[in-house]
Each structure stands twice: as C-alpha cells, then as structure tokens.
Amino acid sequence: MPFDVTILAPHVPFLLKGALLTAEACALALVGSLIIGLLVAALRTSSSPLLSRAAFVYVDLFRNIPFIVQLFFFFYGLPEIGIYVDAFTTGVIALSIAGGAFSSDVIRSGILAIDTGIIEAAEVSGLSKPVIFRKIVMPIALRTSIRPLGSVFINLVLTSSILSTITLNELTGSAKIVASDTFRPFEVYAVLLIAYASLTYLVSLAIGVLHRRLNRDRMPEVA
C-alpha cells in the first residue's frame, strides 16, 4: 500500500469538525487559564504568606503531575461526587486548571519584573489595591509576558489532543476514527502531525504580531 494522501479527501469535512472542536476547547481553556493564572499569580505575589503558600502548592502539583492523570482524575472523579458534566466541559476544566498553573508562573515573573516605583506612584495617588492590580499591575505583566504566555498556549493546543482519551472527538479523536475507517493510519497521522505543527506555527506567528503591536512604541527596552 503506497503512501497516498488523496484517500483522505472525503474525510476532510469530518476532520475539520474535529479541528473546530479543538479550537473551541483551546479558546475556552485559554480564557480559563488566563483567569486562573492571573488570580493565582496575584495570590502568589500577595503579602499573605498563607495565600502565597497555597498558590505555590497548586502550581507545584499541577505542573508535576501528568496531564492525562489530572484528566482521568476529573473525568472519573467528578461523577463520583455527583457532578455530571460532558467530556467537553471536563476537558476544558482540566486544560484550564493545568494551563492556569503554567500561566500563573509566567504572569508572576511579569509582575515581579514591574518597577516598584510605578506601583508606588499608583499607591501615593490614592488608588486602592484592587484598582492598582487591575489597571497597572495586570496590564503591564500581561504585555511583557505575551511571548511566554504564547508558549503556554501552544502547549495547551498540543495537550488538547489528550482529550481524545476521554471520548471527545476533537481533532485527534476524529483522526482516530478516520484511521480505523480507512485503514490508512500512516497517512492520517502524518497529515495530523503536519496539521498540528502548522497550527502551532500560525499561533506563534500571531503571538509575535500581538507582542509587537502591544509593545511597539509603548514599552521599548529601557535604555
């Protein structure tokens, strides 16, 4: 059986549907990780030792346990405690929690890199702590961490393929079905590999553009 990609043509719409599901899951998980990441980064940089310790434990745990184990924990565990959600929701929750751990680390270093004088200027002008965080700390930290956050997001896209193990037919899940329908697993997975690589390449290009747009003129390297 020679290598022949054209055999996949009739299955492209089906694969695209899977890709769409991947995109949806990743987009939702991106938002989820950013929210969790910001929150946890705020806790980790807070002056309360208890809160910062708790935030550290969360990050440490979820960074050092394989995602598939986390995913199974939620997928099989949640129904156990009476929470019945579909595989898609479970996947997005698990991705957000894991992604949140990684983004919080990135955002935290962004926060720690902020010139203390800027925060002091905000303090003496009478701004409250929540306002300072929302209007000063968060936007500056996010802007400077666009690139590392982009790497976290690319990892999120790659990790989302693991959602296929909890019956979710996202891109990898759909490909598995096509592979077993066509008996052409090599073609299917080769194309899938290229597809993911191209997808993440496009994402990294977009991140570069976003980084330049957000930081050009506004925050050049401090002389």
């Binding site: 090599f186 997975y189 590999l193 993911y196 690589a197 993440t200």
Partner: peptide, 23 residues
C-alpha cells in the same frame, strides 16, 4: 526537530504504533 516539538506526542505515538506497521 521543529516538527517533533510542535506536534502532540500522542499523535507521534499513533503514527509510529499504528502508522508504521500499516505503511
């Protein structure tokens, strides 16, 4: 290296485990 870094390990596994024997 770029290809391996930027694609899911799961897909790489499937390619080797299911794909290579078929090809």
């Amino acid at each position: 290296a770029e290809l391996l870094k930027n694609s899911p390990v799961l897909v790489q596994l499937f390619l080797v485990f299911f794909g290579l024997p078929a090809l």
